[in-house]
Amino acid sequence: MRGLILMVALLLAPCVGAAGEEPIGYVKTITGDASVTTDDKKVVAAVGTPLYQGSLMETGKKGSMGVTFKDGTVMSFGADTVFKVDEFLYAPTQGKLKFASKLAKGSLNYVSGVIEKLKPDAVVVATPKGNIGVRGTQFLVVVEE
């Protein structure tokens, strides 16, 4: 019972991504070119585009994108950014808490959500130069190739 979630689509049903999986977040802001790739399917990002475990977010030379996740984490990306959600687990009553992601290049503004409040070592942002462990805060990061 506790694992069940009822989805109530009020205005429009969210696009189905990975079969049977619930979205872990949504795109909230967009400027210029931005895309979301889930299960090898690339879509032009728009306000309301759902994100799933494994989704790849990209912005173009003049693009930017802001997203929110189910645990309240907020992220926004500057131009020419590639960011991937490797693992997102948010089931507090079962103790399943993890947020592992990768910033391959570009810039990110990160605001902490609930996952790391409940489990301090559960959030890591990996980059090609090093890993960032997050303890309940806001930070900026830039990765130049």
């Binding site: 130069k129 090093g130 997050v134 303890r135 806001q138 900026l140 130049e144």
Partner: peptide
Amino acid sequence: PKSYVVLLQSPDGTTGQVVVSGSGGTQTL
């Protein structure tokens, strides 16, 4: 550094920590 992290105050007014670890060592902000 061209690739770096900057710690900011959270919107709720608190400031937490970030820990960076790479080939050169580990630093806490």
